[in-house]
Write a protein that binds this DNA or RNA. Structure first.
Length: 585
RNA sequence: GCGCCCUUAGCUCAGUUGGAUAGAGCAACGGCUUUCUAAGCCGUGGGUCGAGGGUUCGAAUCCUUCAGGGCGUACCA
């Protein structure tokens, strides 16, 4: 409809150019907006205001010229010039009612578009270290990334969802040491668990499982393990202590058995995360291993590539990437003086890899604490000859957890945290998925567990699901009373839908495709959440004001068509957000 | 110090890329069910859009200065 109105205005402007009223080279940016106030009609155009300057005429005069040349359209019942020079359009009921047929025909395809056709985009999200279960802080990134991916798919993009598994590096070694020490404790060795180890109960579980598989084969005596170590905190240095323990584990176990312990920890947690996310309605096409970069020598290759371009220099025995040449505050080390490559070097190789896989655009969903990395990663891409605009980083602010008024502390290391699984079990997948994407990502968010857990009307997801379930009940009710309804007959009777509540519900339905397009373009799933709440509100008002199970067969068919169209849109929208559309509540 | 994000009703937040009189939900108050799910509907009150300045027909939105809050500023991962 907007396009149709824009075409009419363009025709009018062209006619005015021919008539010599406007310069032939005048270019009008025609923008059609939904009106806020229905007194201003249904759609409004501000072109007269924007043209005022270049055409050197008063806005209202331009609006009158345009209106005088506007071709007639059966969709438009009235136009008016209002305010400083807006042209307002009143849309005919026929044109509005036509949306119902479109929704019922397109069904689950309604609202989708093809603007991203032929475009490959990767969305990388969550990517939490596999050193423990996901906690609620990861939930927001998971919900956001999944919904953005769904929105992009609905806009025709070829989307790949990817999880970057940080399975290399010191944290993983700390996990391996933690697993082994718990294993030794279970084998009745007197081991004092390190303060810097992973304290969570899940480490015990992994150790237990490991022991059922290999028995006491990995056992060493406590004195062997604990002698001649740097002291632990508080007297000593907890970092040195844990590093010594890692070394001790590696030397006592040997490479093969150390890997066994290491992989037991990694695989168990990785599998747990995958299942957890699956239960959260989040599935990935690829789990990309950081270690695979090293094994394929991709890190050294990436550094060499930077070196070829002359962006790397040596200083103090280390290799530095000259990121300051691309707007960074300081240069960054890619290879340390001890010969090890840095995490940043892995990131360069990883991002190079993403684009070498043929992605047109890469979207990274990062926690807000990573914002300092954006500049350096983009710098590296630019140095590698890749347009940094092709990398889009979306920062997701932390959700601060509350139980009522009590703030919940979160730390993976201490083991005292609320896991995503707990949240899912207590609050439910639907409410938590919806709650997370109700706020825009860069907003700080207070997540009150008490509120989210309470199945009360305060929880907006129920409001929408309830609307959906109510419509499903209508269908059952009609069947019970042997009152058939027929969509083909209903679509022929749409002119009977002229109540204000019916018109405004249809108008709300009509907005859906542009909401999806807009939300996808801006990576803002919260727009869908707010839209659905409004749609449900329109439906509830309608439902309270009018009855659908009625004897008048024509009106009944028409109203049921409208209800079914509303149901379809709720279903489509909820699906994009990963929320179920229930038939009963 | 420097950098990024945020600041809108008592609370939690929207605000369609610069449009008309800034909107929801919650909380408060008053109504609506012999009839399709009251997890609902209808109504009432509530604002210096953090502050100042600028850009223009027009600013919550863009530019600038300042204040407040959060985060980041490793040869850690």
């Amino acid at each position: 409809m907007k396009q149709h109105i824009a075409d009419l205005i363009q025709q009018a402007i062209d006619a005015l150019k021919t008539a010599g009223e406007f310069d032939a080279d005048l270019v009008a940016n025609i923008q059609i907006d939904n009106t806020r106030d229905k007194q201003h009609g249904d759609l409004a155009c501000n072109v007269a205001l924007t043209l005022a300057k270049v055409a050197r005429r008063k806005p209202r005069d331009i609006a009158e010229l345009i209106c005088s040349q506007l071709p007639a359209s059966k969709s438009v019942t009235k136009t008016q010039i209002a305010g400083p020079g807006f042209i307002n359009f009143f849309i005919s009921q026929d044109a509005t009612q036509a949306i119902i047929g479109k929704v019922l025909t397109d069904a689950d395809q309604f609202g989708r578009n093809n603007s991203g056709a032929g475009h490959k985009v990767q969305v990388e999200f969550v990517s939490a270290n596999p050193t423990g279960p996901l906690h609620v802080g990861h939930g927001r990134g998971a919900a956001y990334g999944a919904s953005v991916s769904n929105l992009l798919e609905a806009s025709g993009y070829d989307v790949e969802r990817e999880y970057y598994v940080n399975d290399a590096g010191r944290q993983m070694n700390i996990l391996a040491a933690s697993v082994w020490l718990r294993y030794l404790q279970q084998a009745e060795e007197e081991i004092t668990f390190p303060s810097n180890g992973y304290q969570g109960a899940y480490v015990n579980d992994i150790a237990k499982h490991l022991r059922t598989q290999v028995g006491d084969r990995l056992k060493h005596s406590a004195p062997e393990v604990m002698s001649r170590l740097h002291a632990d905190a508080p007297e000593g240095d907890k970092e040195k202590h844990i590093d010594d323990l890692i070394e001790r584990a590696q030397s006592l176990l040997g490479q093969a058995d150390y890997s066994l312990v290491f992989n037991a920890g990694l695989n168990s947690i990785r599998d747990d995360i995958e299942q957890d996310l699956h239960g959260f309605g989040v599935d990935f096409q690829h789990w990309f291993s950081e270690r695979s970069l090293d094994q394929g020598d991709q890190i050294n290759r990436a550094i060499a590539k930077l070196q070829e371009q002359g962006h790397v220099y040596e200083d103090g025995g280390a290799l530095w990437f000259r990121s300051t040449a691309f707007g960074d505050d300081k240069d960054r080390v890619v290879k340390r003086d001890n010969g090890q490559t840095t995490y940043f070097a892995s990131d360069i190789a990883y991002h190079l890899n993403k684009f070498e896989r043929g992605m047109d655009t890469v979207i990274n969903v990062w926690g807000a604490d990573h914002h300092g990395y954006i500049t350096r990663v983009k710098a590296a891409l630019q140095a590698l000859g890749i347009d940094p605009e092709r990398l889009v980083v979306k920062l997701v602010q932390f959700a601060i957890l509350y139980r009522g008024n009590e703030r919940v502390p979160m730390s993976t290391r201490s083991g005292s945290f609320v896991t995503l699984r707990e949240l899912r079990e207590e609050v439910g997948k639907d409410a938590s998925r919806f709650f997370y994407v109700t706020r825009k990502a860069e907003q700080h968010m207070d997540f009150d567990l008490e509120l989210a857990k309470s199945e009360s009307k305060d929880n907006p997801v129920y409001y929408i699901q309830y609307a959906h379930a109510r419509i499903c009940t209508l269908i059952r009710k009609l069947a019970e009373q042997n009152m058939a309804w027929d969509s083909v007959m209903g679509l022929e009777q749409l002119e009977k839908l002229s109540e204000p509540a019916e018109i405004s519900l249809m108008q709300q339905i009509q907005l859906y495709p542009e909401v999806i397009a807009h939300a996808a373009y801006n990576h803002e799933p919260h727009q869908v959440a707010h839209y659905l709440k409004d749609l449900a509100g329109h439906f509830h008002s309608y439902y309270n004001a009018h009855r659908m199970v009625i004897d008048d067969v024509q009106l009944r068919n028409a109203r049921m068509c409208l209800c079914m169209a509303a149901r379809q849109v709720m279903d489509n929208g909820l699906t994009l957000l990963g929320v179920d559309a229930p038939e009963h509540m």
